[in-house]
Design a protein around this nucleic acid. Sequence first.
DNA 1: TTGGAATGTCAACAAGACTGACGTATTCTA
DNA 2: TAGAATACGTCAGTCTTGTTGACATTCCAA
Lengths: 168, 168
Amino acid sequence: MTMSHPTTTPNGLLFLTDDQLRKGIEAMFFAYRGFTADPDRILAKHGYGRAHHRAIHFIHRSPGTTVNNLLSILGVTKQSLNRVLRTLVADGLVSNTVGARDKRERHLHLTEKGETLERALSDAQRDRMRYAFRTAGPEAVAGFRQVLEAMMDEDMRHSYEALLDGTE
Amino acid sequence: MTMSHPTTTPNGLLFLTDDQLRKGIEAMFFAYRGFTADPDRILAKHGYGRAHHRAIHFIHRSPGTTVNNLLSILGVTKQSLNRVLRTLVADGLVSNTVGARDKRERHLHLTEKGETLERALSDAQRDRMRYAFRTAGPEAVAGFRQVLEAMMDEDMRHSYEALLDGTE
DNA sequence: TTGGAATGTCAACAAGACTGACGTATTCTA
DNA sequence: TAGAATACGTCAGTCTTGTTGACATTCCAA
């Protein structure tokens, strides 16, 4: 019989079998599919993709953010982001205002229409997250976040923590 | 001051603020980037993408699996999978043998070369998962898996559990 | 004041997903 | 046993989203 739960060894390190780690890997794979499924359905109706969702989400989170700022959070090239941004501006979901202090910068905001779509997307995603959290219970939620935070790259954790400031 | 941890209400349901749920959503987003970062680097060297990784992973997990089987696990179209599979077979990483019982089926196996790449990919991914699990501790690992499993779609959870059979 | 750095835009291309249609071999079933 | 269903492969075309390269504008510092 194989061990199905991590145990602590005399040296104080967690003993982890390849099987336990693989289960974590596959859980991550299948869960992420569920995580994106609901927004994907809504986006498809509007002719958008996940890239649009990500842009909308972080503009909502940090109103007035610049393109460069968004780039470092999203981790894509500016040309890639620009294409998405262009369609969102053209469709009237995002507004694009020249910076007052630095005229090279463009400050991004969601319009009324943009906020409406953001609501629909985040409602759907929160519903699933709420169900998962309630099903698993409060201790599980704490563990979930601890593992995910340890899984991030150094610089991504910085982005993550910067977003958390003021809401913790 | 906002609540930063879930609490239980008199009706027995977890009380979850939008902030708590959003943190879960953003943690998922940033962690998944870390989750795929190491394999992505290795794949890029070989001229492959994530699609190749997924195929290699599940062929390794279920040697002799059929194309149809793989399709339902990966959740892509056969045209999409076929493109990936064709290059893997051409490059000598995957073998493709006609079924003995049912000659319509093709059974997929990793070659020696395929197993070598699989090792490199899964070693990298396991290293990160091990670090995350050790950093977070055993209770956190249990919670992590509980939340992820509750986050999966019904049919994905079936695939996930089917893969677990015999290893739990 | 001028040259370099920073910010953002446009154009072209590639990977990888999708749909739809079709062909072939094989198996199942009425 | 004939016809329907299944398993697999392929061609053609589209879409999203990533990439590089070239370029305009703006700011700043030598």
